[in-house]
Every structure is written in C-alpha cells, then in structure tokens.
Design a protein around this nucleic acid. Sequence first.
RNA 1: GGGCGAUUAACUCAGUUGGUAGAGUGCCACGCUUACACCGUGGAUGUCAGAGGUUCGAGUCCUCUAUCGCCCACCA
Length: 753
Amino acid sequence: MTTKAVTAELGRAYDPSEVERHWYSYWNDKGYFQPQGDGEPFVIVMPPPNVTGELHMGHALFVAVEDLMIRYQRMKGRRALWLPGADHAGIAGQWVVERELAREGLTRHDLGREAFLERVWEWMDKYQIRIREQLTSLGASCDWTRYRFTMDPGPARAVRTVFKQLYDEELIYRGERLINWCPRCNTALSDLEVIHREVTGSIWELAYPLEDGSGEIVVATTRPETMLGDTAVAVHPDDERYKGLVGKYLILPIVERRIPIIADEAVDPEFGTGAVKVTPAHDFNDWDMGNRHDLPRISVMNFDGTMNENAGPFAGQQSGEARRGVVAHFREAGLLRGEQSYTHSVGTCERCETVVEPLISTQWFVKMKPLAEPAAEVARTGELRFVPERFTGVYLNWMDNIQDWCISRQLWWGHRIPVWYCQACGHQWASVEEQQTTCEKCGSAEIEQDPDVLDTWFSSGLWPFSILGWPDETDDLKQYYPGHVMETGHDIIFFWVARMIFFGLKFMGELPFHTVYLHGIVRDAKGERMSKTKGNVLDPLDITSKYGTDALRFTLITAAGPGTDLKLAEDRVEANRNFANKIYNLTRFVLSNLEGAEIARDEQGDVAEPEGEALALVDRWILTRLHRTMAYASRQIDNYQFHEAGRTIYEFLWSEFADWYVEAAKVRLRGDGDAGAATQTLAYVLERALRLLHPFMPYVTEELWQRLPHKGDSLIVAPWPEPGREYAEEFEKFEAIKEATRLIRNARAEHGV
RNA sequence: GGGCGAUUAACUCAGUUGGUAGAGUGCCACGCUUACACCGUGGAUGUCAGAGGUUCGAGUCCUCUAUCGCCCACCA
C-alpha cells in the first residue's frame, strides 16, 4: 500500500502496534529510503549481520543509532543512503549448518563439499529473509534496492580482484609458518580468533641430563608432551649459573635427541630455573627463538590433536594422554624435579572454545606492514576520527604492532582462494575469473584450485566499496564512496574497522569513512553479557511487541553515551513507552483545540512561527525554550551525543511543554480573546517538536504529525527545524513565575488547602 | 607486564567549553482540572569512591590511593 488513512480518530491510549502497522511500507513504497534530492550525500554502510540466526539486542542498538543519524541527515537535506547487507560469516556460518547436520547424525564429509555447500546456501537463503524482516520491523530506513550479501557474485568478484592484485604485488604470500590451529574446527585461525582464557593446571620441572654426564639442566613447562619436539634449551646470556654450559649439549630423554644449550636475551632468568625448553614447532616464542638460532623444527602433533610419528612411544595418542605419559616417564626415570599447581592463560577457539594448538602449517598470509602504515597515519593526522576519542589509541596500538594476517581457512563455506596450480608445469597463479580451465602458462588442463577459503573478514574489509559495485566504476561508487560514519561495536575494531581502513586506502586511495562511532555492548539489567547459555537474552522483537519499536529505540539511544556499555532493564523501556503515550495524548489535546481554528502558514506552507503583540508571556517563554532545544539537540547530534539530545527533547516535551505550557493554555483556550495566539503556538511547538523527535521515535511521531497542519506527505522528509526567535527577558520572567508557582503549591499542600 | 574505562539519590544511569547537584524506576502524601492513571501536584533521600593540588569557584582539570570491569601482550 502506498497511502495511509489518517482520518481515523486517535484512540484513548497509545497502542504501538496500531501506530506502527503501516508506516514502514508507506515510506519504503514512496522511495524515501533511497537518496533524496540533490544535496551532499551522507552514507552509512550497515555492519552486515551474520546470517547465522536471529537478530539480538546488539543489532537493535546499531539500527537505532544508525537510523537516527540517517533520518537526521535526510531531514537536514543530505542525500542520505544507508546500505544494508548480510555476511556469510565463514566459520560461524559453516558451524551452524554442521550443527544442524549433527542432529541428523551426519558430518559435512558425509555429504561432500558440493552437497554441503548447497545445504549452507539453503540456510543462508532462509535466514537472509528473516534478517531482512527483522531489520524492517526495527524501522531501519535503509535502501533495500541496494541490499547485498557478501557471497553475491559482485562482492565475490571484488574479493578475487583484491586477492589477485595483492598476490601480484607479493603482498599476499603462501608460507609455512607456525599458526593457531583449532583441532575441533580443523582449520587455521588468525590471532584475533584466538581467545585467551585463564586455566589452572600444573607446571612441571623436568631434568635433562648433560651429554657428558656432568650434570643436568632443569626446565619448567606446562606442556610436557611438547618436550618430544624440543630442539634446544635456552638460558639468558648473563646468567652466571649457566655461563659455562652454553654451547654444550643435552640428551633429551625419551627420544634421546642431542640438543644444544643456547643463550638468548628473551629468557627471563628470574622465572623458574632460568632455563627454557625450546620447541619451535609448538610455541610462538620458541618459533622466533628457533629462527634466531637456526634450530630445527620438529612437529610432534597431527592436525587432529593426536601425537605423530615424531612422538616416539606416544605416537597416535591424544595429547592429554601423551602429557600424562611423559610426566610418568620422567617420574620413573627420577628426572621429575617438581610439579606445582599453576594458573596461566591458554588460547582457545573463539567459536568452539577448544584449546588452540600452535602448529606448523602452510597457509596464505597478507603482508601487513605496507598496508598498516598509511592506515595508522590517517588516525595520527586526525583525518580519521574515533568517537569516543580514546579508541584512537587502541586502534593505533594494534596497527603499530601488527603481525601478518593468516587469511586461509580449511573450511568449505566462504570465498574460495582464487589460486590455481598446474599439475603439468607447476605454475601457480591467482585469477579474477571464478573458473579456470587451462594453465595460463602451459595450457594444460590439469589444474587444480586451492581447496581453502578466505577468512570471512577478508570480504568484510572490502565491504564499503564492494557493496557499491567495485571493481566496476559504477555510478553508485562515484557518488557514494567515501561514506561518512562507520557505526559499530568496539569489539570489532581490529576484525573489521581496521581492515576496511587499510583496504579502502589501498584500493580506493581514500578512507571509506572519516568517523568511526563505537557503541557499547548491551548487557542485561544486572550488567551481565547476554548469552543464550545464561538464558538472560532479551529478544528485541519480544520487547518491541510489548512496548513498541519507538520505546525500545529511544531506550537504547538514551541509555548510554558512545562507547559505554549499557544495561537494558525492561522498566526503562516501559518508561519510554509511557513517553510515547504522553506525546500521543498531548497531540490529542492539541488536535481537539485546532478544530475550526485558523492556523497561519509561512511561505513554505509550514505552520508559521507565532509572533507579534498578541503573544503572551508564556508563549514567548515556550518559543524560547523550543528554539533553544532545537539548537542544543542539533549540536548534540552533530557531536554524536545522541543520548543527550534525546533526553533534552524528552525533557522539553514533557516537563516544559506538557506540564507548563499546555496547562497554562487551558485557561486561555476557554474563550477570551487570547485563544488565537495560544492555538498557533500549540500547533507550531508541537509540529516542530515532533520533527525533532522523529529520528528517535520514527513511528509515533509520523503518526501524530500526519494529523497536524503540515507541509509534505511524510515527516521522514520534512526539513529538520531551524531555531527561530528567542525572548530572553520573557524567558527569565516566566522561569521566575514557575518558581513562585511551585512555592505556592508547596505551601498549599502543606496547609492542606 | 602494559593500556583503558567505571566509582554521583534505595536501584539503573545522565551530567563536553569548571559557576549554587539531574532523570527514570521505587517510596510517601494528596488528586478524576479541555489530553494522558501508560496521569497530575507536592515531598523525602546525595561530604558526586578516598586523599591532596590548581582556581574566586571542581562531579567537571592535575597527582596519588582503593575497589570493580574491559582490552592488548609469547610469562616457559
């Protein structure tokens, strides 16, 4: 439907479901979600939700904030564009479908790659629709005609284009490195996908005998099973205890390997015995130390977490079993020098919480230094701004200490690595075209594509330009890149924000946005993170069906400032529903007094600002209050202080307009000659105030505004109100009257009059 | 080990150019008056974590301390 009957009487009480029923499709059908007019563009790229399930409060929060900015700028005459999309969520996406299969007693290997991917696509098609419905129900005024999925052909081609260029410039390379491996997910992970958790275990002290039989060195370890892969023992070069031993050799028990004693600055002589076992194949420190001293790397573990053939008698065992076996061996041999309880942090898989193993593996990496330097520079110069400011430091700290990015994943769901290998001549190349049939060098048809897929954040990093059609030089790309504000959670600064920045600079030569606005995390009323396992999740759609979308949005916006976590208590949403009811009834009152009244219009056709001799003191006071509120709210929104702007408008409408102005007007409206000024002022103040409130509470304001004298067919495209005249003297005078009135009422209450 | 944030009324939180402490919820008393009981009027409750400093003046700026929380980092 494209029209909405607004002739129906307003009921006695505000009913959110009634008010919200029609407006979304009204706006969308009229095309108001697409860029309007010929003003300067204002573009926000929506963080594409993962297509792994239902939307949660975090999504409701970003919708509320981004929609506020978009609606505000649209009313200010900017060509506002909010670009919606969804993310295929690589490892998480594969995970949800595997879990579904597991309920049928199947694994992805039972289906095979092709059938499994079909299954994933079914899921994605189904949940993309759900997510779109949910964004719709939250009132997101985004442009659905430009909706994209990260696995759509366009964005997929952008991924291959970027990959190929980086590959040809040797900024992407393939190499054998020590990487984080999740034995459960059976894939490599980037550093960011590893979550360190405190674990209480044991630390064992193991004695390694010197080769010449003159003694032993004791090392401490929390992972005894890795000793099977030790290729040295290291001490600090200045450590007097070991000075004479550096350069000598030890005999590693069990495997009977001859390993050197080396000196390295990285060893902390204060810790333990001051001697460290070095296992380059299973520890990141040791990997580096191994490189410095040219030590061999001996891997003792398979990718499934079992011990391999290098583990001697423990080959084939699970690592935990091998750990107990190694300790037992040392004990029996009289070489166990101690065992203490010990708390330390271990890396776990972000997705499944399995302990991550550092393993040597051949993976694809992005060389980060050349990309990170310009990305750090823009933050230093202020070209890129973070709100709140403090996140600049967090961002720079990461950029300045960046490691190469492991981008290959041993998964099936995701963008396949566009690298081909020729069996005939050994040539290897990257391709922008999805399919290759022959070797580009020798023409042989015996070619194979790399089986792995890319880290999901690789495609997310290109999103601000791939969503606009890049690498094609589309009209949209010319008009709407770069965007303006990136609004997202502070938990994905590194995962996503940083990557959009360096990819944007690299491939577009320009930042994708100049401001990064970071919101906090939505917690429950007790301050705990909402999670399904805790059972404290508030479903946004439950809340909106109870109190209305407007109430939830207003609550999320006003509950906390930028970057601050917010606790969502239901009674707060209820209070804001009551606010919606308040303005609903306020409007009913005003409307009842507008019947038959002459309302003056200005040149634009809007309700005219009341002026002249007929104005009473109270009129001038409320006009001053309104104009000051307009100025203040605009300034606060411009400064990203949405919570402050929201509260200010709330205060104005309730405590000033309803409590004082409307009450004072009642007397004047009874019939003596002064009614005209009051009516005009009521209509003017309410109409303008609804405009102020619209970005915060889109539905109820539209519903009410439609019934007031106005110009245009929707509040969504009504101009943002500009402050009119202030009457400072009258303002002060009425403030004094308010104070006096309060004192009188107080006295009356005390004396029971 | 570094870095950041929080600490304001019983509870949950606002308070950005330093100027006599605010809201919502809860509590108490009264109240159907051209909208609203999803309401109105009035009320009670705060050494703004603690100590010191800058200032005519500090919740707001500086230093230190305490408690809680978060992020980063390879403590074997």
